[in-house]
Amino acid sequence: MGIFGFIKSSIGQKYVVATTGLLFALFVLSHVLGNFLIFVGPEAYNMYSYKLISNPFIIVAEIGLVVLFVVHLAVAIKLTASNMVARPDKYALQAKGKKKTDPVTKAMWIQGAVIFIFMVSHLITFKYGTYYTAEYDGLVVRDLYKLMVEVFASPLFVVGYVLCMVMLGLHLSHGIQSALKTFGFNHPQYEAKVRTVGLGVALIVSLGFIAQPVYIFFFQ
């Protein structure tokens, strides 16, 4: 049994979902912070993207992210399925008063499903989207900024993007706290801090990502 038995146990699987989720949260946090260069201008943004993709280690990071994503998804689906099996018959009524469960915490898998669909379409739209080029001081780089302005000219796209980022924000608002609590950080010393960190990162990520297409739509 030992550590291999741990991974097979329900608590072990929670650790796996929590670890991969937290690492992914760090990725989206770095992604949103990097993307703030949109507000600086096309050159700053395109050069940032060029520096990222021209780094030979980018492929390692990409494979790492795919692995994180697949493991997070697979183990979360497995846990969610066994959690549903554990309550085969539903209650006629749901608690409404002091014993009500926060609906955000109950809908993690729905938010997850939306984020999954979003990520696939996000990669198709941007990573594998039209390859425009721009030239800065004789250096030809991909003009992602132009593609973004083109994509976010559509109000439908902006609204869809904003809704998906709300879902991501909700997912993180519970996910980060929950992951830290799964690791054992639920203690008078950490409780308030864990809550603040979880909600803080969720707000920065979702509001940060929402601000970008809205800015492009109205000001570019």
Binding site: S10, Q13, S82, A86, T105, S178
Partner: peptide, 17 residues
Amino acid sequence: VRQMDTEGFGACTNTEA
């Protein structure tokens, strides 16, 4: 913990219900 898993209880998702 192993007996808890064997009995078919679900896992905790920290809803705190």
